[in-house]
């Protein structure tokens, strides 16, 4: 490791400042979910209450949006797991012409601005004359979720000693047995981590979804539509906190699962 020099004050202050900048908005969203103020974003809040949580839970449209979001996220994640793992298995060790193009193609859906992917899918759907449905949402989500699974699995495959695979084959196991007993146990946590990130990504995606959802509302689209309704502000605040909480759990778990054991 690096010889442990102490960082200068400038670096420390800068690092600390950036960290605060990244995280104090999250404290704000927690605080405002409990404010008694209904009409404005007044700070400091005049009082604290938990009444908006109940009010949100009584909203039928919230539950419908949540249900759709969960359904989309689960199916998109499963699709991404299968497709992402296949690509990772193919690209982890092979070196062939076009390999870089394939990895670029996998990254493209999240590297290009979301609006490009969104409007592209929308034009395709419109040219083909397919009606918008839950499946058109899933189609888009699975496409940009593949990269999270691919990244996690390919990194794990590259860290796993290939000698294990060779040993298994030398001892007479077929490719399928080797996959089942050697490769799969090695990549399980990477799969779970990739899947969780894919879930988090799908669960709160709004830009691409706007273009492929038709009239349906996923939870982020519901929140987005809520922003134009000032009367609903307190309920929106609680929903915002809810979404943050739901996505934090898989992210932290995914991080724990893929941590390098060297530290």
């Amino acid at each position: 490791m690096h010889s442990r020099l102490r960082a200068g004050w400038g670096v420390r202050l800068g690092a600390f400042g950036a960290l605060v900048f990244l995280h104090f908005p999250l404290l704000i969203i927690i605080l405002y979910a409990f404010t008694t103020e209904e009409a404005s974003f007044r700070f400091p809040p005049p009082g604290l209450t938990t009444q908006w949580i109940g009010e949100l839970f009584n909203r039928e449209d919230f539950w419908r949006a949540l249900g759709l979001s969960l359904q989309v996220a689960v199916i998109a994640t499963l699709l991404a797991l299968i497709l992402g793992t296949l690509i990772a298995l193919a690209l982890a060790r092979a070196n062939f012409f076009g390999r870089d193009s394939i990895s670029l193609l996998v990254i493209l859906p999240i590297a290009l601005p979301g609006i490009v992917s969104g409007i592209a899918l929308r034009s395709a759907v419109s040219i083909l004359g397919v009606p918008f449905s839950t499946w058109t949402i899933i189609l888009g989500h699975a496409t940009f979720c593949i990269v999270t699974v691919y990244n996690n699995v390919v990194a794990r495959l590259r860290r796993t000693a290939h000698s294990q695979v060779e040993a298994s084959m030398d001892l007479g196991a077929s490719s399928f047995q080797t996959f089942r007993y050697i490769i799969l146990p090695n990549i399980t946590t990477a799969l779970v981590a990739g899947g969780m990130l894919a879930f988090a990504l799908s669960f709160d995606e709004v830009i691409v979804t706007t273009f492929t959802a038709g009239n349906q509302q996923t939870l982020p689209i519901w929140i987005f539509s809520q922003l134009t309704r000032p009367r609903d502000r307190p309920v929106t605040n609680v929903a915002a906190l809810f979404v943050i909480a739901v996505t934090f759990i898989p992210i932290i778990l995914a991080h724990q699962l893929t941590r390098d054991r060297r530290d």
């Binding site: 990244l22 704000i28 709160d204 929106t236 979404v243 943050i244 992210i251």
Partner: peptide, 16 residues
């Protein structure tokens, strides 16, 4: 954490 967590909510927080 902020990278993966809800983009929309984080934008909304700044509105507040």
């Amino acid at each position: 954490l902020p990278l993966w967590s809800s983009y929309l909510v984080r934008v909304y927080t700044w509105k507040i």
